[in-house]
Design a protein around this nucleic acid. Structure first.
Lengths: 233, 233
DNA sequence: ACCTGAACACCGTTCAAGT
DNA sequence: ACCTGAACACCGTTCAAGT
């Protein structure tokens, strides 16, 4: 089936030093060790023992590398709940894992959010698992993609939030511009440390995500119930 | 009350060419006319008839300018619903306006999402209106900030989504990796053009945001109802 | 086909020098 | 105090030249 490609020219074929796989792995290592800020074409080339211009024999741009990284990162998202759990529990677990992964990979969000899913195999497999799980649970086919997208939107927004400084809502010197808001922020912060069942203090971002996800899922359940009763047009 | 500041040195005080206000306005003009990509320090300086280094007498960095722009952009968000409407209707209108504004200002999202609200007067006023509206409607004080944050997270994620290409979910050549997902995407697309009450085709991103916002608000209403009945610990 | 090294066209930012 | 002009330390990307 696989034919040995005909050799063009006279030289023997040489095994290339670089492959897209190796470039992706090196990029992941670099990110893991020194963060996205240090992922530059020359740093990446240096890590691979190669000159920066050599990378352009295998990828078209730095954005291409981000896309490769993104597909690999999506493998870390846990979809296992859809095998055994109820759809709403599975969806919640998936959303939590999704948020955790992207709060560690914030610079990927502008990339993935606008990126066609074609050519991203692991991403597609993830969507397949989630879609199949929802449809098996009786979700109507035309709504599934919208529901998944809505959860993703909440996840991306919340991932940003998770990386924000804890005092992001402190009004500071402009306190008198927003007294009611300032009081609510203070009350929220108090709540976070003295949570009834909480030995451990949660962050405001976590509490907001918890509330949002819980209410979104409650709304989903209600939506499904309404649709099943059948609404006459 | 306002005293004329004492003159230091011998020179008479000169009126500066540049102010933070003027810089912000020029930045907004530049963005409006040629987009965020063309907002560079030298282009901005050029627009103001000044050299790039002069800007650093008034702002510490380009990020500072983004923050000034962001506070001005937030003025465009419509909060008027909280004056007259029910809290859920007002919150929905606010979220829709918020998303519309930020889908035109995507590059601000990474800035605002992580930005302390202090020193952003218009942003604070917005939060004040929303918070006051929710609390007047009976929302418990410790939950208000979390609810607002959850809506914002959905809004930011959906704003990204709104700028994505329409065929973002087409599996392309990897179709066989995700057959169930591919079918659901096709079915969704069909739904969009043949919507029962829709003369006008909506985008998938709009449909997803509609579903997400509707369900989130339904969940909020249920949460409030439950809290009002009082749950004994 | 694949890699090197030099060069290009930008960035944001700094700083001595002027007034 | 505020602006200029030159310079700095980077970026991603291109391209002729080598093998």
């Amino acid at each position: 089936m696989d034919q040995i490609p005909p050799e063009r020219g006279r030289g023997r074929p040489r095994t290339p030093i670089l492959t897209r796989r190796r470039i992706t792995t090196a990029a992941m290592d670099l990110i893991q060790n020194s963060g996205y800020r240090s992922l530059t074409m020359s740093a990446l080339a240096n890590q691979l023992g190669v000159s920066a211009s050599a990378l352009y024999n295998h990828v078209g741009s730095k954005r291409d590398i981000m896309i490769l990284v993104q597909d690999r990162v999506n493998e870390e998202i846990d979809c296992s709940g859809f095998e055994s759990e109820e759809w709403d529990v599975a969806l919640e677990n998936w959303a939590r894992s999704y948020r955790e992964v992207y709060s560690r990979n914030i610079p990927l969000i502008p990339v993935i959010a606008v990126l066609p899913v074609a050519n991203s195999p692991h991403t597609l497999v993830m969507y397949e698992v989630v879609t199949a799980g929802l449809m098996k649970a009786g979700w109507p086919e035309p709504l599934v993609v919208n529901a998944v997208t809505a959860v993703e939107s909440l996840v991306f927004g919340s991932a940003y939030d998770a990386t924000a400084p804890g005092d992001i809502f402190d009004p500071g010197a402009l306190n008198e511009l927003a007294p009611i808001f300032a009081a609510a922020v203070a009350r929220r912060n108090l709540m976070l440390v003295t949570d009834e069942d909480g030995e451990e203090a949660r962050s405001g971002a976590d509490a907001a995500f918890d509330l949002g996800l819980r209410c979104l899922l409650a709304g989903f359940r209600e939506e499904l119930r309404t649709l099943r009763q059948g609404v006459a047009p």
